[in-house]
Write a protein that binds this DNA or RNA. Structure first.
Length: 570
DNA sequence: GCCGTTTTCGGCCCGACTGTTTTCAGTCG
């Protein structure tokens, strides 16, 4: 049983209890536990097997620890099964429909017997929902639309797409008369690998003018709501956007509030309450008196905390670290000296060796590694030993011509099914950097996949395990692999892992990055660029590294080329 | 159901917008 399964079960229970009208705080406790578990890096199943106390996790007390242990051991959660005797299980699904919360789901069930998405759509089309008290034609139409949208919209957009959509809209809003400060907030600002909806914040003395200008944005497909200071829009790209306008003196408080995360906000608001203060999106207040709000620093200073970078605001220890003055000095883009994973026209890249080198140099790098595919990836025109040696000679010749810049000889060698490598040792040992990765046999069991990768690491010539889970965001799940075991294996063998900065990969993801830091495995942040402009994905990779609390010294490619070469010799 | 440098009991973040209402409940983030 995976953490995601446990989280899903608890959420289902929370939904049913919510619909029944159970104590709202009890419901919240289940939801918050589900969230903690979903993002917890260690499998709770293993923790239970090792008899580690689950009550160590925030929001999990004695009762929940017992229930979760029973769920893991028996596959049953009696309190859920009892709830499913009282209410149809399908009601939990209805909670996913926009505009429907517990009260309306209960009403729909009690009055019309609606207990599934299909029943809901049918009732809406027949005009039966509008007959209920508190419902009308608009609600009926809105609910139908939301129910239909559930079927085909991907739930979250990629970080790079969200960045682009936000930049476009901010550029549009800057042209509104009177917009003072503008910023993206929400999970985009926190740098999560996917974004649910965009939050855009504007400060202005003339909210009406900004809102009017916003309404004429050509990318709007649908206006979900539109008030005097807040609007929710659906763009043609399928992205949902919340735009909020506040006075400039509240911009910092609003930015802080809308950046979240919700868990982070709840924690700091609670600290405020303990000090007799109240934090909302307009400022920090003692009674009616406003104490701060212009900047985030001002707001946090009121609860005796230093500014916390948005990437850390997940209530995963950053508040305690801030209080104790032990926040990490996170790695920045400026710290990056090179890029250790990229392709050229020799395999499936679109730019030549020389073009990639020049583009990297223009970004201020001191080195790159050229890592084309190996021969197994025939589809990508992978290199055999002979072609790889020819490329090495080309690199030697290029290095002769370049000053203050080094092209490292590399390859992205395929890990075969049994853990052997796709190129012979005598050529691998001539490489400066050997990146190795899985491109086939994704459906091996967890044990087989883990053994396969560990065996590949046993080869003394490999250095950096690329895109370690193989996931494609909104595309496919990664292969099943015990990353914790891989990290320990890497540490024992002097091997490193990669944060692949391709926006569709961002692999490792943040919680694995954090675990790598805890275990003490340095990571390389690589773009896996297949064209010169893709070298720019480095920013996304650095963001993931920051979300995993990495400092400069935790990142391989902040080293000088001399240091790096030494670390690549095992 | 969780939690505790005010509390082991009594709190639990806070406000905008909508639709359907005559003053507000429900939803959302």
């Amino acid at each position: 049983m995976q953490n995601a399964d446990i989280a899903r079960t608890l959420n289902r229970l929370a939904n049913l209890l919510d619909i029944e009208g159970a104590n709202a705080f009890r419901v919240r406790a289940y939801r918050s536990a589900a969230q903690t578990i979903e993002f917890h890096p260690h499998a709770l199943q293993d923790m239970v097997a090792r008899e580690e106390p689950l009550t160590e996790l925030p929001g999990i007390g004695r009762d929940l620890a017992e229930k979760i242990t029973e769920l893991i051991n028996t596959g049953h959660l009696p309190v859920l099964e009892e709830a499913e005797k009282r209410l149809p299980p399908g009601l939990s699904q209805l909670m996913r429909v926009g505009q429907l919360g517990p009260a309306r789901v209960r009403q729909l069930f009690e009055a019309l017997g609606i207990d599934s998405l299909d029943a809901l759509k049918k009732a809406a089309r027949n005009g039966r929902i509008r007959t209920l008290e508190g419902f009308g034609e608009k609600t009926e139409a809105g609910v139908l639309k939301e129910a239909e949208r559930l079927d085909d919209t991907p739930p979250r957009v990629r970080l790079d797409e969200a960045h682009q959509a936000a930049a476009d809209l901010i550029a549009w809003l800057e042209r509104a008369g009177g917009a003072q400060r503008l910023s993206a907030a929400g999970s985009l600002r926190r740098g999560r690998d996917t974004v649910g909806d965009l939050d855009i914040l504007v400060s202005s003395e003339d909210a009406a003018a900004v809102m009017t200008h916003l309404a004429s944005y050509p990318e709007i497909a649908e206006t979900v709501s539109h008030g005097t200071t807040k609007s929710t829009l659906l763009l043609h790209s399928g992205v949902q956007v919340d735009v909020r306008v506040v006075d400039d003196e509240s911009f910092g408080a609003a930015l802080y509030y809308f950046t979240g995360s919700q868990a982070h906000n709840i924690a700091t608001r609670k600290m405020a309450t303990e000090r007799g203060l109240k934090i909302n999106e307009y400022g920090v207040y003692r009674g009616e008196k406003r104490l701060a709000g212009r900047t985030e620093e001002e707001v946090l200073a009121q609860i005796d905390l230093p500014w916390i970078t948005p990437e850390l605001r997940e209530n995963r220890g950053e508040i305690e670290a801030a209080r104790e003055g032990t926040l990490p000095a996170l790695v920045t883009l400026d710290d990056i000296r090179g890029d250790l994973h990229m392709h050229t026209t020799a395999s499936d890249g679109r730019a030549s060796l020389e073009e990639m080198a020049h583009a990297a140099r223009q970004r201020g790098y001191r080195y790159i590694a050229i890592t084309d595919h190996s021969k197994r990836l025939a589809m990508a025109n992978g290199l055999d030993a002979k072609r790889l040696r020819e490329q090495m000679s080309e690199i030697d010749a290029l290095n002769e011509r370049l000053k203050n810049f080094t092209v490292l000889k590399g390859n992205e060698v395929d890990i075969l099914e049994d853990g052997a490598l796709d190129l012979p040792d005598d050529v691998l040992k001539e490489l400066d950097v050997c990146v190795f990765s899985v491109h086939s046999k994704f459906n091996l069991s967890r044990e087989q996949q883990t053994t396969r990768i560990l065996r590949a690491m046993d080869n003394p010539h490999v250095n950096i395990l690329a895109h370690p889970t193989g996931r494609i965001i909104n595309g496919r799940q990664g292969y099943d692999v015990d990353i914790e075991a891989v990290l320990h294996g890497a540490r024992e063998r002097g091997v490193f892992l990669e944060i692949n900065a391709q926006p569709a990969r961002l692999d490792l993801s943040d919680h694995w990055v954090h675990m790598a830091r805890d275990i003490g495995v340095a990571l390389a942040i690589n773009t896996d660029a297949h064209a010169t402009d893709q070298l720019g994905h480095m920013t996304l990779g650095v963001t993931q590294a920051r979300r995993g609390w990495l400092e400069k010294s935790d990142v391989l490619n902040t080293r000088t080329v001399t240091q790096l070469k030494k670390m690549m010799r095992r």
